[in-house]
Design a binder for these strands. Structure first.
Lengths: 138, 138
DNA sequence: ACGAAAATGATTCTCATTTTCAATTTACAG
DNA sequence: CTGTAAATTGAAAATGAGAATCATTTTCGT
């Protein structure tokens, strides 16, 4: 049975109080410390794992470690896809009928069921594309 | 200027001699050792990076470290998407007009250009879906 | 051959994440 | 209120993939 601990409440509140931006476990731990509710890093990782399981946050693995981000959908538990700009690191939610149609097609024609929780569409956002046009593609 | 080294040739040959299955850098190093062409692990990483840059192999980051896989397209350098079964680990190439249509849609309507080289669609293959039906979803 | 540039590889380092485990906290029954 | 069993915590240690170092070796145009 799950216990409701001070640390659980602190992490939940801190995540919900955030704007829609990605953060690392270490950053969240630092925020909690500054808010006067210090939570051990190991526990932060554990709580974030739980919040991910319940669909309240997304976990986005990157080369430099995992990023977490509050799921903007009301109740959580939604299956939504993420777009991640590999240049500026921004992560946005994708609500797109055509994406869902593709999933149905992959299931029907390719016998493959995509798991939105594990899939991150990575590329470039418009801002970064424009920057590259200006500076010459790096 | 790039030099053609014994190690480069060994890695290239070993990768090309493989069937279409994913492998780790350490596995490739072990294969090379057993084949009598030992190559240092650091060099295996470096060579695989080069082969990825040239489009000859795909690099698939996973929780337990990166997997590499020969790109089945003739000349390499193709932009293709990968489907990865998170249950059995199998990685297959996706050739799908609808996927390409989605990319165009994301570029046009969502101002986001997907990079196939960085995107792995993760989910379940049919074999594993059937297994789960039989055993009860784990 | 000669020498500059490139590559190698054993080793060391980094650093995010996990594990360990004793101490603490929670939930609940009596 | 206790007692207590199970869940949780966190500091410290372990892990492990991959990157960095750097002295040595190899490549290749001249």
């Amino acid at each position: 049975m799950a216990y409701v601990t001070r640390q659980y409440q602190a992490v939940l509140q801190c995540v919900e109080g955030r704007d829609e931006a990605a953060f690392t476990a270490a950053e969240l731990a630092e925020d909690l410390r500054q808010a006067g509710c210090p939570v051990g890093l190991a526990t932060v990782y554990r709580q974030l794992d739980k919040l991910e399981s319940s669909g309240l946050v997304h976990k986005v693995p990157t080369e430099e470690g995992a990023l977490y981000q509050r799921c903007p959908h009301p109740a959580g538990g939604q299956d939504c896809f993420l777009l991640r700009c590999e240049h500026c690191g921004r992560i946005v939610h994708l609500d797109c009928e055509q994406m869902e149609a593709l999933c149905r097609h992959l299931a029907d024609a390719h016998h493959f069921r995509i798991d939105p929780r594990r899939t991150v569409l990575t590329g470039r956002c418009q801002t970064c594309m424009n920057q590259e046009d200006a500076y010459g593609t790096p």
